[in-house]
Design a protein around this nucleic acid. Structure first.
Ligand code: MN
Ligand code: MN
Ligand code: ZN
Ligand code: ZN
Lengths: 143, 143
DNA sequence: CATCAGATGTAAATCAGTTGCACAACAAAT
DNA sequence: ATTTGTTGTGCAACTGATTTACATCTGATG
């Protein structure tokens, strides 16, 4: 999806050692057009390189902590997409409750006004997420 | 929270046998001002009555399927609140990523415009959820 | 080369939630 | 009242995603 990103460079500039596994995980997430599960990522890497599931989990945790990627939970498992940045504007997501897949939606598809809210809320707000739930196109056909 | 709801009646009118366990679970959810986990509900009931965790899970599943309650996942576990209805208008929720607690927010706090989107989307949309993530007031104090 | 921190592999544990099966409760039919 | 059937509940074992503990490897650096 993103041909503007140098994943090794992103890792370096975040202060992270750009190990092969880290670059691979980040690259797979960055080039995919919808958030992927740890299992998806493991399978993708394992097709061409030897890697352990636990390493994938550890890399995902690290990248999440440094806010390079963004975790979404569909009720079964986490899926990861690139965190918002210049190249990746924030956008809503669609969650299929049948197959569990998560789709990125167009940033303009749903507009939100949060202005007055952010000022009143007593805690610390890190993120505002808009999730649309339902049955995806593909699952609609099957049923 | 809700003193307008007759939980036994709600169950009956949904076509569900209003067993003691079902009424208790639904009542606890309805009277609480924020979504509760299965464990929360189990503990509450178990203080005064004998019940099994599995029964709680089964009741929660049944009530969710009949859309009397609404599940939210904070990444660790599901929490359940009353599903939107006359007495309970839909509203955004705040998710504390430190303690996992979920708070109901004021319905007007965040406004959303979804009109054009719903027409274009190829799948079936059941629900639009707005989730605000961050650190809750209480966890802010502790840290 | 020797050393050492950080990254990875492996097996076992954890934790929320589910499943299979036996038993209890309740109502309708005999 | 006894039988039957249907539905709800308890209990124990299981599952699947993720985490942990600990051993081993790797790649700098002196
Ligand atoms: Mn996305
Ligand atoms: Mn709520
Ligand atoms: Zn689907
Ligand atoms: Zn909190």
């Amino acid at each position: 999806m993103c041909h503007r990103c140098d994943y090794t460079e992103i890792l370096k500039s975040t202060g992270l050692d750009p190990t092969k596994n880290r670059v691979r995980v980040l690259e797979i997430i960055g080039e995919n057009n919808s958030p992927l599960s740890a299992e998806d990522i493991f399978n993708t890497i394992a097709r061409s390189h030897r890697i352990n599931r636990v390493t994938v989990y550890r890399v995902l945790k690290l990248l999440s902590e440094h806010m390079l990627i963004e975790p979404f939970n569909n009720g079964r498992s986490f899926h990861y997409g690139m965190a918002p940045s210049k190249n990746h504007p924030p956008h809503p997501h669609f969650f299929c409750k049948s197959c569990g897949k998560i789709e990125c939606l167009n940033p303009e598809s749903v507009m939100v006004d949060t202005l007055n809210f952010e000022k009143v809320f007593p805690g610390k707000i890190d993120k505002l997420e808009i999730r649309v739930e339902g049955i995806c196109k593909n699952c609609m056909k099957l049923s």
